[in-house]
């Protein structure tokens, strides 16, 4: 089942920044990570989805209803970035207020069953008894936890979290990751908007990369990180002079670099090649030179390397996020 689908969604601010032609599809049960440097247009995209911004062009549906339609947000939980809650209320009052915005009557929000629900989300988000204090007395991290509690309050099927770990300490971040895993196991769909790569690497099934308002890539995480151009060979019987001999026989585009070398002749070679056939050719050369090849492993790209390669190693240049 498709939860969110956007078709060439665009929003340009007067400054010329924003995002353009973003087409994404989010399926049920997955954790989707939207990546990009600061100012890439990630939050602009999210705000269009949740109805805070009106798109200049393009369209989208949330639970089959047009984005912007309040009905589309019935099963949505949203944690905004740079939000604030009414600091004159207690955490529990904030949740009751939001329940009212979701259509619950005052009597329903005051009921014992809803009080139990509030307690449950406070426990889930690590607020516990502090949830009944005034928001004014909260630290930034606690406000972030209250934001999470607010997003989860109505037991939504689709949860959009905009930089959920930004104000949290390492323990808080770990707890958020655990929470995301739990939500996935419950069949919830999560849209994670972040530039914290460890969060994405740990939990996301699919990722998309936004840079300067443009969608640069989108797909399953493993597919995004896979690289066909680099392999690691563990060998023995390696002699220093072999590198020069091999380099004369290598095919165009191939390169061999020794990354580890031991006195007993064992070594780890990092090989760049266009395809697997070239790796087969290299193995034959090595065997002919008396080298034993123990292991050939394609090198998996790191998310950080992928992030840097996608952004060309540069930030978005002050674009509004």
């Amino acid at each position: 089942m498709i939860i969110l689908q956007t078709d060439r969604l665009s929003k340009t601010y007067a400054s010329g920044t924003g995002c353009s032609n973003i087409s994404l599809t989010i399926k049920q049960g997955q954790i989707f990570g939207l990546l990009g440097p600061n100012g890439a247009g990630k939050s602009t995209f999210v705000k269009m989805v949740v109805g805070l911004l009106r798109p200049d062009s393009g369209s989208g549906t949330l639970f089959g209803k047009p984005i912007g339609d309040p009905e589309s947000r019935v099963k949505l939980g949203y944690l905004p970035e740079l939000f604030r809650f009414q600091d004159w209320l207690t955490g529990a009052e904030v949740l009751r207020y939001h329940a009212g915005l979701c259509g619950m009557t005052r009597a329903q929000t005051k009921s014992a069953s809803f009080a139990a629900r509030i307690k449950e989300v406070f426990r889930t988000c690590g607020l516990n008894e502090r949830g009944y204090d005034r928001v004014r007395q909260y630290s930034k991290g606690m406000q972030q936890r209250l934001g999470l509690a607010c997003a989860l309050l109505m037991d939504p099927d689709f949860i959009i979290l905009d930089e959920p770990s930004s104000a949290l300490d390492p323990i808080g971040r770990y707890e958020v990751r655990q929470l995301l895993e739990r939500l996935r196991s419950e069949g919830k769909t999560v849209f994670l908007n972040t530039h914290l790569l460890e969060d994405v690497e740990a939990v996301c099934d699919e990722v998309a990369f936004l840079h300067k308002g443009q969608l640069r890539a989108s797909g399953p995480m493993q597919e995004m990180l896979r690289t066909d151009s680099s392999w690691e060979l563990t060998v023995s019987g390696w002699l220093p002079e072999l590198q020069e001999e091999l380099s004369e026989q290598l095919l165009p585009g191939m390169a061999v670099e020794v990354t580890k070398k031991a006195a007993d002749g064992s070594a780890v070679l990092k090989v760049s090649a266009h395809n697997r056939e070239q790796i087969g050719y290299l193995i034959r050369l090595l065997v002919e030179e008396g080298v034993t090849v123990y292991e050939v492993v394609p090198v998996q790209g790191s998310l950080e390397a992928w992030f840097l390669s996608m952004s060309g190693g540069e930030a978005a240049g002050g674009a509004r996020s």
């Binding site: 009905e71 905004p80 939000f83 009414q86 915005l101 979701c102 259509g103 934001g147």
Partner: peptide
């Protein structure tokens, strides 16, 4: 300006009601 509206207006309620 202070971010209070972000969480409010993303709820399933028409803005005129707010």
């Amino acid at each position: 300006e202070n971010g209070l509206m972000l969480a409010i207006l993303s709820r399933p309620i028409p803005r005129w009601k707010v």
